[in-house]
C-alpha cells in the first residue's frame, strides 16, 4: 500500500522514508521539521565521528549527524546530492545526513513489526521496529535514541 495522502485515521502513522548506506529507514513525520540540501558544516572539535559538524539553520546552530556512521554502517560518499533531514526531539534540533529521501508512507499501527532478534544491540537500540513495504524492509528509527550520545560528546 502506497499513499501520499493525509492520514485521517489515528491508527495510521505517516513516516518519512529515506535511504543511506544501501539500507532503507524511516522516521515518524511528526519529528521531521524540514528536509534540505547539504551544506558544508563547521567542524566540532573532539566530537564523535558521526557528528559532521554544525550548520546554520535560519539563525540556529544545528548539529548534523551522519546516520550511516551513527549506526556503524559504511560511511556514505560526500556529495552535494545528499540531503539533511532536520528533526526535533523535545526542544533539541538536529540534522540527519542521508543519501536520499524516497517516500512518505502511511502505515497502520499493525504494519510496524518488532525488530527481529537477529539485529545487533547497537542497531536494535536505535530501531523501534521494521516496516515491510513492497518487498522492501524499512527500518523505523527511534529518533530519541540517536541523541543521548551527545552528552558523551559534550564531556
Amino acid at each position: 500500500m502506497r499513499s501520499s495522502g493525509y492520514a485521517t485515521d489515528p491508527d495510521i502513522r505517516e513516516l518519512v522514508a529515506f535511504r543511506t548506506a544501501g539500507q532503507d529507514f524511516c522516521i515518524d513525520i511528526l519529528s521531521v521539521r524540514e528536509i534540505r540540501g547539504w551544506s558544508r558544516p563547521a567542524l566540532l572539535p573532539h566530537a564523535p565521528t558521526y557528528v559532521q559538524g554544525v550548520i546554520n539553520l535560519r539563525g540556529a546552530v544545528v548539529p548534523i549527524l551522519d546516520l550511516a556512521r551513527r549506526l556503524g554502517l559504511e560511511p556514505i560518499e560526500n556529495t552535494d546530492r545528499n540531503v539533511i533531514i532536520v528533526a526535533a526531539i523535545q526542544s533539541r534540533i538536529f540534522g540527519l545526513l542521508v543519501e536520499a529521501v524516497t517516500d512518505i508512507l502511511s502505515v497502520p499501527a499493525t504494519g510496524v513489526q518488532p525488530t527481529p532478534d537477529l539485529a545487533s544491540d547497537i542497531t536494535r537500540s536505535m530501531l523501534k521496529g521494521v516496516v515491510v513495504q513492497e518487498e522492501r524492509l524499512i527500518r523505523l528509527l527511534d529518533v530519541g535514541q540517536l541523541l543521548p550520545q551527545f552528552e558523551d560528546a559534550a564531556a
Binding site: L44, P45, H46, A47, V54, A60, V61, V62, P63, S91, R92, I93, F94, F150, E151, A153, A154
Partner: peptide, 9 residues
C-alpha cells in the same frame, strides 16, 4: 541547546 558544551569553545 542543540548540542552541548564543548571544551575550548
Amino acid at each position: 541547546a542543540n548540542y552541548g558544551q564543548i571544551p575550548g569553545i
